[in-house]
């Protein structure tokens, strides 16, 4: 999987293509014609997905800190469990520990590509599990600068892609991709994402609103590698350029292949999720 991904990537580098052509690798049909920027963008996205495939499941704790223009802060604590689903979007469970008035609230999402996600919410105050509409992609998550669509599972078919350029991004070399949401009701006209060329870590993303004006920038740092392969950031910061607010996510206690199964991601067991 990895080798194929790397081979495909070679197609993006004209110098490499020439070199390969010179040594007579004419049998590789993928690089036998010049790819358009769209094809190249899609290829990078696919390679990125292939790189992260096979994580099976992971759990982590998320501390979300909201900051307004004056510098006042407010925090939320959420435990996240994600199960990889082959051939469809992932299943994920979020359990809220803070603020105290929503403690015990749990949200279950079965994400799908372009089809609307299936989503359930458990409200502990009245012990009610509610199936909810997942149409609210662009709304703020818990009053933060992250929209629901920023935190959802990122399937290939959710966007159309274009490789804009390759450039240095901090300590890494990055692909700069333009992603245009293909799903309905996105709050964005387009996104520019910086993915490092080695492991497809998302280093930075710019979000443009429906009027095509720069709305937010997400910066992910302190990447840590798990199981000798999968990279996850320990810090993500979303800055809203239009309202001056920002939200920081601090991720701790990442664990992979924890043995979660489909049974841990059922609406019927939501009310006992801990």
């Amino acid at each position: 999987m990895l080798n194929k991904a790397r081979l495909n990537k070679i197609g993006l580098n004209k110098f490499m293509v020439k070199k390969l052509l010179l040594i007579g690798l004419m049998t590789l049909p993928l690089i036998s014609h010049a790819q358009t920027a769209e094809e190249q963008g899609l290829q990078v996205a696919k390679d990125g997905e292939a790189y992260d495939a096979g994580f099976v499941d992971f759990t982590a704790n998320m501390l979300m800190t909201l900051k307004n223009k004056k510098g006042d802060t407010s925090s939320r604590q959420i435990r996240i469990r994600t199960l990889e689903v082959v051939g469809d979007g992932d299943k994920s469970l979020s359990i809220f520990d803070q603020p105290a008035d929503v403690k015990g609230t749990a949200m279950l999402t079965y994400s799908h590509g372009l089809k609307p996600d299936d989503q359930w919410l458990y409200l502990p105050a009245i012990k009610r599990v509610k199936r909810i509409s997942s149409r609210n992609k662009s709304g703020p998550f818990m009053g933060s600068e992250f929209a629901f669509e920023d935190l959802g599972s990122q399937e290939i078919e959710k966007y159309s892609y274009k490789l804009l350029r390759e450039e240095a991004c901090g300590e890494f070399q990055c692909f700069v991709l333009e992603r245009i949401p293909a799903y309905k009701y996105s709050g964005y006209k387009r996104q520019h994402v910086w993915l490092d060329k080695e492991a497809y870590r998302m280093i930075k993303a710019d979000f443009y609103d429906r009027k095509n004006e720069l709305l937010k920038t997400l910066t992910s740092t302190d990447y840590q590698q798990f199981l000798g392969h999968y990279w996850r950031p320990r810090k993500m910061e979303m800055v809203n350029h239009q309202n001056g607010k920002s939200t920081t996510l601090l991720w701790t206690d990442y664990a992979f292949k924890t043995g979660l199964t489909n049974r841990d991601f059922k609406s019927q067991t939501l009310k006992r999720a801990r």
Partner: peptide, 12 residues
């Protein structure tokens, strides 16, 4: 019936 983000605000 829910109108999400009425009048370009975050209000549903």
């Amino acid at each position: 019936y829910t109108c999400f983000g009425i009048l370009d605000s975050p209000v549903d």
